[in-house]
Design a protein around this nucleic acid. Structure first.
Lengths: 347, 347
DNA sequence: TTGAAAGCGATACCAG
DNA sequence: CTGGTATCGCTTTCAA
């Protein structure tokens, strides 16, 4: 059963034929002054003093016409804009990440930048970079790691004074906020090892786009356990019940005594399937998630997790601002991901 | 403990001094042709035939300089753009909604529109509308209900050929996708009533921005139960454990035999608190959520929920396209929210 | 087939 | 204090 776009009858008559969009010339005409004067008045230009009556007439005319300046024309003339371009991430974003993004936007707004989300970051950002560059943003903030040195060069050549990537690996020529997801896996693995677990599973989510994080997390696990007697087993898992049930059904055969479930959502999915299968948690198998979501505290047993700390939006905004003001400085590299275990009852 | 912006040393030397941004004039000069010819070649203008050797020279020059056209200049000249502006929603979006948004973007992209997210929709959209209008979008897609007739007028006067709102209530002059959240509450209430429940609680989330949905959902519940012997009790609830525990502690005193928990996340929160308090579900109290998230199926008892159906992104994109092509038509109003109960074990 | 030139809307210099 | 005017980068007639 689908309910889609059921049109309901509407009353209002077709609107009046649209007048053409008013320009500063229209305002000038109506106010009986020149376009220059209009510009001075509406921008409060301090270098020039305009008489009060004139100002009034200009403002009145602008209001009457519903005049709104044309951003493109303005920035064309000015030769620059304060637009920060941020392509939408192409991976499913959790509450953590989306809060971070919102914070960044807000902080950049405070610094008088205009944040614009255009298009989607993805595996082919070097091509997409051309499209982004057409907008002549003063800075570009790219989540994920689809952008290479070529893309950065395109953006810089077309006037971007700062390119910042948010990804596990830095990119030549761009500032980098290094989201070190290895640390997450490292943390989780050390915790499980310390609790006496030796045969450790690592969930690899099926969700497209998540490899960006899951692969480094796995690497972190491997790294933490190198040289110990522990084993690491990859466990592909799609985000649905059937997949979880299948995995749980062959669980005992795997002989694992612990699992790092990628994040809290996958942990919940897997934990439920294991419990349905009669696997005792944490007795038979310890489970740890990541992201420290609310839902982990609501599960029974309460879910152990890796708490992830992202930088404040303000910090990132200030990095962008610094870079814009002084584009000549070498790209900064910041490690911005803090990971720490929150031990609860599932491990 | 906070890990924030730990700078790590970096090797690369400061980049070469940035040349100024190449324009089509530079390309023309390098190719030894006029700017007009450059434009013809790069835009594949069919009205004019350019010799193959010339085309080659132009393309080569463009590539060598890393030329990227200036979108603002182009649309200034053209007198219009294909930008669809979509302010980001100012309420916390669930997976349902964000998938819808992504779909819309994709579908509009297919129709050759450029979707740009700029700023945030909010309670003061009539003021924000001015800022949006500066970008001269050909269409504006506004989630939430902060935009009034005034804001719509501003946008239209500055050239927007279509304004579409996604909200419970229509706005004068704008096309409307009516998200009828009353239907959600209505559905839930009828279900609970049919299952013999009479003293019905309705969770009102504390999350800012959610009143947009919670108020209509409550109204839907009230409406469904009007004229029956059932009672409706509002239950304010913040999205944290303490708040849930407090509510659960006074639960028996409330004497409710059912609760519509706003959505699945709040339902999970409340259900856990009730279970911790020893309240039997569904025996003593029935619980129903909304949004039909995965997590509902993972809870025990499995969570009953209201499944919500949003229109396809393609449909919305086509509405926008229609409106842009023929702005004279009266605003369309569409009911776009389908609601149906998914009965599981919690009710 | 190519080039010269007008003009989109806003701003900032320089005269008056 | 205010008005003419050149200019930003690009497209598109109109002529050659």
């Amino acid at each position: 059963m689908r309910y889609v776009m059921v049109q309901i009858p509407n009353t209002p008559p077709p609107p009046a034929p649209p007048r053409s969009v008013p320009t500063s010339a229209d305002v000038a005409r109506l106010a009986g002054v020149s376009r220059a004067t209009v510009s001075y008045v509406l921008n409060n230009t301090s270098a020039v003093r305009i008489s009060e009556p004139t100002r009034r007439r200009v403002h009145a005319a602008a209001r009457e016409l519903g005049y709104v300046p044309h951003a493109a024309a303005r920035s064309l003339r000015a030769g620059h804009s304060r637009m920060v371009l941020m392509p939408a991430p192409n991976f499913p974003v959790g509450p953590l990440y989306s809060r971070f993004i919102a914070e960044v936007q807000w902080a950049l707004g405070r610094l008088d930048y205009t944040v614009v989300q255009y298009g989607t970051a993805g595996p082919h950002d070097d091509e997409a970079a051309r499209a982004w560059a057409e907008l002549r943003p003063v800075a570009v903030l790219v989540p994920g790691s689809g952008l290479g040195a070529r893309g950065v060069a395109v953006l810089k050549r077309s006037g971007a004074r700062a390119v910042v990537t948010l990804a596990p690996e830095p990119v030549e020529g761009a500032h980098a906020l290094l989201m070190d997801h290895e640390a997450v896996g490292h943390c989780a693995a050390r915790h499980l090892y310390a609790r006496g677990r030796r045969r450790i599973g690592v969930v690899m989510p099926g969700d497209a786009g998540l490899e960006l994080f899951s692969v480094p997390r796995l690497a972190g696990v491997r790294h933490a356990l190198r040289g110990t007697d522990a084993t690491v087993t990859e466990l592909p898992l799609a985000h649905d019940e059937e997949s979880a049930a299948r995995l749980a059904a062959r669980w005992r055969g795997l002989g694992l005594d612990a699992v790092f479930a990628y994040n809290d959502e996958y942990a919940m999915l897997l934990m439920r399937a294991l419990q349905d299968e009669g696997v005792a948690i944490p007795g038979e198998t310890a489970v740890i998630g990541a992201d420290d979501l609310m839902l982990g505290r609501l599960l029974r047993p309460r879910l152990s997790t890796v708490h992830i700390e992202l930088p404040s939006g303000r910090d990132l905004a200030e990095l962008v601002d610094r870079a814009v003001r002084d584009p000549a400085t070498a790209p900064e590299r910041h490690k911005v991901l803090g990971a720490s275990v929150v031990h609860r009852d599932s491990s």
